[in-house]
C-alpha cells in the first residue's frame, strides 16, 4: 500500500459525509439564489430567524422530546436485543429460523400498517398518545436491528471465556461486567446507535401513536422539509441532522480499533 493511501481514505470519508451539508448551509443562509449563479446572490438570515424566532419555542421543546424518546428507545432496544442476539448467536434450537423471521417482521411489513394496527391496540390499552406508547412503537422498528447486530456479534463470540472466569470464581455480575460487556461493547454501541437514529427519524408512527401530544422533531419539521422554501428547508434539515451527527461522531470514537466482529 502506498504511504499516502491511508491518510487519503481517512480524509475522504469525513469529506464525503460533510459535502452534502455544504449546499444545506448555503441555502439556509441565502436570501436570493437563482440559476445560473454558483452561490447565493444575496445572503440573509430569514430562514434562521424563522427557525429560532417564531418557531423557536416549538422546535426546542420538540428537540428535547426527541432526545428523550430516542435515548430511552435506544437503551431499551439494546437491553432487550442483547439476550435475543446472544440466544440466536450462541445456541441452535428448534424453530430458530421461524423466530428470526418473526423478529424481522416489523422491518418487512410497511411501517404504516404496523403503526395503524398497533394504534388500535394501543387505544384499547390506553397507550395511545403517551410517551410509553411512542417508545414502544419505535421499539418495534428498532429491535430487529439491534437483535441482528447482536446476533452477528455473538456468533463470533467465544463463551469459553465465561467458563474460564467462572472456574476462577467470578460471579455472574462480574462475568457480565468484565467479560461480556468489554467484548461486545462495539456491537452494543452500533446497536444503540442504529436504534437511536431510527427512533430519531420516525415520523408516521410518532404522529399516529403520539397523536400530536408527543411532538418530536420530525413532527415539527418534516412538513417544512418538503416545502418549496429551500432556505427554510435547509435550515430545518440542519437542525434535524446536527444532533444525530453529534451522536454519530461521539460513538464513532468507540468503533475504531476493535471492530464490531468481536474477539475469538
Amino acid at each position: 500500500m502506498k504511504p499516502w493511501f491511508k491518510p487519503m481514505i481517512v480524509w475522504l470519508i469525513p469529506l464525503a459525509i460533510c459535502l452534502p451539508f455544504i449546499p444545506l448551509v448555503l441555502w439556509s443562509l441565502s436570501d436570493r439564489w437563482f440559476y445560473p449563479a454558483l452561490g447565493p446572490q444575496t445572503w440573509g438570515l430569514r430562514a434562521w430567524l424563522y427557525v429560532f424566532g417564531s418557531a423557536g419555542a416549538q422546535i426546542i421543546a420538540s428537540l428535547l422530546q426527541s432526545i428523550l424518546v430516542a435515548t430511552i428507545t435506544a437503551f431499551t432496544s439494546v437491553i432487550i436485543g442483547t439476550p435475543a442476539g446472544r440466544a440466536l448467536g450462541l445456541y441452535d434450537f428448534k424453530g430458530k429460523d421461524f423466530i428470526s423471521l418473526l423478529f424481522m417482521l416489523p422491518v418487512i411489513v410497511p411501517p404504516l400498517c404496523v403503526a395503524m394496527g398497533l394504534h388500535l391496540w394501543f387505544i384499547r390499552l390506553s397507550l395511545a398518545e403517551t410517551y410509553v406508547g411512542v417508545i414502544l412503537v419505535h421499539l418495534t422498528f428498532c429491535l430487529p436491528y439491534s437483535i441482528f447486530v447482536m446476533w452477528g456479534v455473538f456468533s463470533n463470540y467465544n463463551p469459553d471465556y465465561e467458563h474460564q472466569a467462572r472456574s476462577l470464581g467470578a460471579s455472574s455480575g462480574q462475568i457480565v461486567l468484565k467479560i461480556i460487556l468489554p467484548f461486545t461493547m462495539p456491537g452494543l454501541i452500533v446497536a444503540g446507535l442504529f436504534s437511536f437514529l431510527l427512533s430519531w427519524s420516525q415520523y408516521l408512527s410518532t404522529l399516529i401513536i403520539g397523536g400530536g401530544r408527543v411532538t418530536t422533531l420530525p413532527i415539527m419539521l418534516f412538513a417544512l422539509m418538503a416545502s418549496g422554501d429551500r432556505p427554510v428547508a435547509g435550515a430545518v434539515s440542519i437542525i434535524f441532522v446536527l444532533p444525530a451527527l453529534i451522536v454519530l461522531l461521539f460513538s464513532a470514537r468507540y468503533l475504531g480499533g476493535r471492530s464490531v466482529v468481536g474477539v475469538r
Binding site: 388500535l120 399516529i208 401530544r213 415539527m220
Partner: peptide, 26 residues
C-alpha cells in the same frame, strides 16, 4: 400541530372510530 399531509390524520381518526374511542380525542 403541523403535519405533512392531513390524510394521515384522517387515517388516525378512522382507527380511533374503529377502536370506539368516541371522546377525549386529541
Amino acid at each position: 400541530v403541523p403535519v405533512k399531509d392531513i390524510s394521515e390524520v384522517v387515517s388516525k381518526l378512522l382507527v380511533e372510530k374503529q377502536a370506539g374511542k368516541n371522546k377525549n380525542g386529541k
